[in-house]
Simulated assay, not measured.
Amino acid sequence: MAKTTWTDVDPEAFVAAVSPEKRRQDAAALLELMRRVTGVAPRMFGTSIVGFGDYHYTYASGTEGDAPAASFSPRKAACVVYLNDGISAHEELLARLGPHTTGVGCLYLKDLARVDLEVLEKIVRRSYATLTAGTYGQRAAER
């Protein structure tokens, strides 16, 4: 399996090419939200993930690598916000977010207009702070 890495693709051009229009609008809003929350410029991680900042992880298995500290991907069915510190870390806020579904580290948003963007911003800010604190990789290694 190939390891995903940062690319030189322009994230603004990537978002501008997203379809359908609704998904493109949501992706543009997430781009600005994450840029504001993280204070860093977006970069493409692989072919379809817009990332902000990065963190290094090491698992007990010895697997390690680098990943975006905040990221999203505008998929056909929904925009995916990646919460690499785990969905469970945000349960209280997620209860107030509005319509969404989740996976282990994924937050699926079908319509950004239907969620509370202030709550989403708090979730992204908390996740980003956790992943960039320098201790997340250590905690992952202990799992």
Rank of each mutant, 00 (worst) to 15 (best):
P68F: 07
V124M: 01
D54V: 00
T132Q: 09
T4R: 09
V40M: 02
V80N: 05
A70G: 04
T135Y: 11
T63C: 00
V18E: 04
L30E: 08
D66E: 14
Q25T: 05
V15N: 05
M44E: 07
R125Y: 03
A60I: 04
E142K: 13
R125A: 13
F52Q: 09
F52Y: 15
V124R: 07
L83C: 01
A141K: 14
A60G: 00
R114Q: 15
G39E: 09
R36E: 15
A28T: 14
Y108T: 02
V124P: 12
P68G: 00
S48K: 10
G39Y: 11
V50S: 10
E32F: 00
T7I: 05
G65R: 07
R35N: 12
Q138H: 14
C79N: 15
T4N: 04
T5P: 00
V37A: 15
A141N: 01
L31P: 12
A95D: 15
G62T: 05
R43P: 04
V80R: 07
T101I: 07
F72C: 02
L112A: 02
E64F: 08
R125Q: 10
P68Y: 06
A77N: 14
E21W: 03
T63D: 03
A78E: 10
F52S: 06
L117W: 03
A141F: 03
V37I: 12
R125H: 07
T101G: 12
R125K: 12
G53A: 06
G134E: 03
A69R: 10
A28Q: 15
A16Q: 11
D66F: 09
A17L: 02
A140V: 12
V115G: 08
V119K: 05
D26K: 07
L109H: 11
A113L: 02
L120P: 10
D54T: 08
T4V: 14
A60K: 13
V9A: 13
T63V: 11
Y136H: 12
Y128L: 01
P42W: 05
T7A: 08
Y82K: 02
P74D: 12
Y55C: 01
S73K: 08
P99Y: 13
R36F: 11
A60W: 04
T38S: 11
T38Y: 07
R126H: 09
F45Y: 15
P68K: 03
V81P: 13
A2T: 13
E121C: 03
R35D: 08
G105R: 08
I49F: 00
G134C: 01
Y128K: 01
R43S: 14
G134N: 02
F72E: 01
R75G: 11
R96I: 00
P74Q: 06
G105V: 06
E12H: 15
T101N: 11
M34Y: 10
L120W: 15
A140N: 00
G137H: 04
S19P: 00
K110C: 03
D8R: 11
R43H: 14
D8N: 13
E118K: 07
V40F: 05
S48G: 04
S71M: 05
P11G: 03
L107D: 02
P74V: 05
G51I: 01
A41V: 12
D10F: 07
D85R: 02
G65S: 07
T63F: 00
A69M: 08
G46V: 13
L33N: 01
A60L: 06
A41H: 14
P11V: 04
P68H: 02
M44G: 10
T7C: 05
H90G: 01
